[in-house]
Design a protein around this nucleic acid. Structure first.
Length: 608
DNA sequence: GAGTTTGAAACT
DNA sequence: CAGTTTCAAACTC
């Protein structure tokens, strides 16, 4: 059974599919040369292991494995998609009843933790004997001695996972895990029933942020974030409170009414090369790339309803399982949504509640025209002001750029996770109308033409293509042969354009000069202060400002007031009055500085 | 800040 | 595909 179905394969961008073949002939999807690849081969084993789904109680037998399972990931330059996959024959047989393919969670010594999603939607965990090697996953000393592996049930938000427990050393952890444990306060282990001895459910405490809970799991390479509503965060307190022994369901709860708005793995950059994709509690696979900006949550089941548009989705979009009951089944999330969640956290968390719409409004800037995400994200996009389009039409810049609205001024915004169904439909509608709708409008022109040009050309009639109404001009490119504009003045030799360019250049130069002048003045003042206020030889610091006493301040103010009076009596214009006062202030300042310097010199001579 | 202009997107 | 309407950004006052 192929984990990645042909239907799903067909959804992948072409450039991803045009990649080198993988070693395992049983796997139909190939890997990209650009990408890290995680491979794990399970060799033949006849051991039989039974584990119990801690949620459903389902017992899964994985014994008698004859073939191997391969886990790998791949990506492509722009899309940077990694597809995680476990291909095995009998391994998947073991979980056929579960309904989804198994995924390797991690390797622990000679055991491989595998998970699948039960038909009830609950995760099933089991282990596979493993005699092969798995690069990038460190062995945990001691656990190979355990003939009967034991597990801890780790609850992370809505998710429940099993973590192996070394029989010989109890809760022994690796160095990495120990380090990470330091960051996790108040971990509680609660005994729960299970196979092979006692099991524990580890309660990972929530952060103190009201809306955002960052969860770090010992031994887990992923950082988890959990967004909750302000009310649920305080009222439920499921993970931090004492009444948390009940195992959470594995179903994802998206933004909205549930306690958990979102729970997604966020991978640190340094951990990428050793990423072992974490199974979501639904039939989806989180896949990630060496660049953390983009992630793809690929469903393990076909997506018939939205297949046609998939190759044209906004670049780097993420497919995430839609909330239960969604007719569509998947939601399309801006690619960097996951990563960028970390940015708005401070803002979101600092407020007592989410915006009125109740939606997470975050923004994920997607790479355009080869401009890296880092570059684009450093320049915040302007907030939109949509009032009627619900931000679900291309009128909305956020939507058109494949972003969620964030800190926008829009009304009745649907461009957020809370309305993922509507958003997905809107995306599909746009793609039906124009498959290129989400592709960058500014791209490479034909050979011999300018490097950058508008893909469709503009249709300006009255602006002369010299105002920002014109998409070409706005993109700072000249109109090309495909433009249908009337009265175009946006071409190389256009005198109007040249004039505009000169004006723009002159304005820019003025700004630069002003900035330079300010910098220079600031530097001179600083220099002056340094020279007139010699450093204290003993401490190496500047002369303390103890000379600016209350009396000195009062005297200074009197001088300034006196100057103001003088200006008023002589009926000086306001500008002149201000000048006089400032001048007086300068004199006062110099006097203070001079006195301080003298005092310092006297002090130094006395000390000598 | 309100009103106007503009051209892309959406609609017919 | 062309004409019209809608929409939000750009622009002007």
């Amino acid at each position: 059974m192929d984990v990645v179905s042909p239907e799903l394969n067909s959804l992948l961008p072409d450039e991803i599919m045009d990649t080198e073949a993988i070693e395992d002939p049983s796997v139909s999807v190939s890997t990209s040369s650009t990408l890290l690849s995680l491979k794990s081969t399970l060799s033949t084993s006849t051991a039989t292991t039974k584990t119990t789904d801690s949620v459903t109680g389902t017992t899964v037998s994985t014994g008698g494995l004859q073939k191997h399972a391969t886990q790998f990931a791949f990506s492509a330059a722009n899309h940077q998609i990694i597809l995680n996959k476990v291909a095995s024959s009998q391994a998947t047989e073991a979980v056929k009843s579960a309904g989804t393919p198994p995924q390797i969670i991690k390797q622990e010594g000679q055991k491989l933790l595998v998970t699948a999603i039960g038909k009830s939607g609950q995760p099933i965990f089991f282990q596979l004997p493993h005699t092969g090697s798995k690069p990038g996953v460190s062995q945990t000393a001691g656990n190979t001695k355990s003939p009967t592996p034991q597990f801890k049930v780790v609850t992370i938000g809505e998710r429940t996972e099993l973590k192996p427990v070394m029989a010989s050393s109890g809760n022994q952890v690796t160095t990495l895990q120990a380090q990470q444990l330091k960051t996790v306060q108040n971990i509680k282990s609660v005994p729960v029933g299970g196979v092979g001895g006692s099991q524990y459910k580890t309660i990972i405490p929530l952060s103190t942020q009201p809306n955002v809970q960052q969860i770090q799991v010992p031994g887990n390479r992923f950082h988890y974030v959990r967004l909750v509503t302000a009310t649920t965060a305080s009222s439920t307190g499921q993970l931090s409170g004492p009444n948390t022994s009940s195992v959470q369901t594995g179903k994802p709860v998206m933004v909205g009414t549930g306690a958990v708005r979102m729970s997604v793995p966020v991978v640190s950059a340094q951990a990428i090369k050793q990423v072992v994709p974490k199974p979501l509690p639904s039939a989806a696979q989180v896949v990630t790339t060496a660049q953390t900006q983009q992630r793809l949550i690929m469903p393990a089941t076909p997506l018939p309803q939205i297949q046609p548009g998939f190759t044209s989705l906004p670049p780097g979009t993420v497919l995430a399982p839609a909330p239960g009951g969604s007719s569509v089944g998947y939601t399309v999330v801006p690619a960097q949504y996951v990563t960028q969640l970390q940015q708005p956290f401070a803002t979101l968390a600092s407020s007592s509640s989410f915006p009125a719409s109740g939606a997470i409004q975050t923004q994920a800037k997607l790479p355009l025209n080869g401009v890296s995400a880092a570059e684009t994200t450093s320049r915040p996009r302007k907030p939109c002001n949509c009032t009627k389009s619900q931000c679900l039409k291309l009128y909305c810049d956020c939507f058109a750029n494949g972003e969620f609205c964030n800190n926008c001024n829009c009304n009745n915004c649907f461009n957020n996770l809370e309305h993922e169904t509507e958003r997905l439909k809107a995306i599909k509608t746009c793609l039906d109308r124009n498959p290129e709708a989400f592709k960058p409008k500014i791209g490479k022109g034909k050979e011999g033409e300018s490097d950058r040009r508008h893909s469709k050309g503009c249709n300006c009639k009255r602006s002369g293509c010299l105002k920002n109404y014109c998409e070409c001009y706005e993109a700072k490119i000249m109109c090309s042969s495909i433009c249908k504009c009337i009265g175009c003045k946006n071409f190389e030799e256009s005198p109007e354009r040249k004039t505009l360019m000169h004006l723009a250049d002159a304005a820019e130069v003025r700004v630069q000069q002003q900035t330079a002048a300010k910098t220079k003045l600031s530097s001179q003042i600083s220099d002056l202060l340094m020279r007139t206020m010699p450093v204290v030889s003993s401490g190496g610091g500047r002369l303390p400002f103890t000379f600016v006493t209350k009396e000195v301040l009062e005297a200074t103010c009197e001088c300034l007031l006196e100057q103001a009076k003088k200006a008023e009596q002589s009926r000086q214009p306001q500008a002149e009055a201000e000048r006089m006062i400032l001048e007086e202030f300068g004199h006062c300042l110099m006097s203070i500085i001079s006195s301080a310097g003298k005092a310092k010199a006297d002090c130094a001579s006395i000390n000598c």
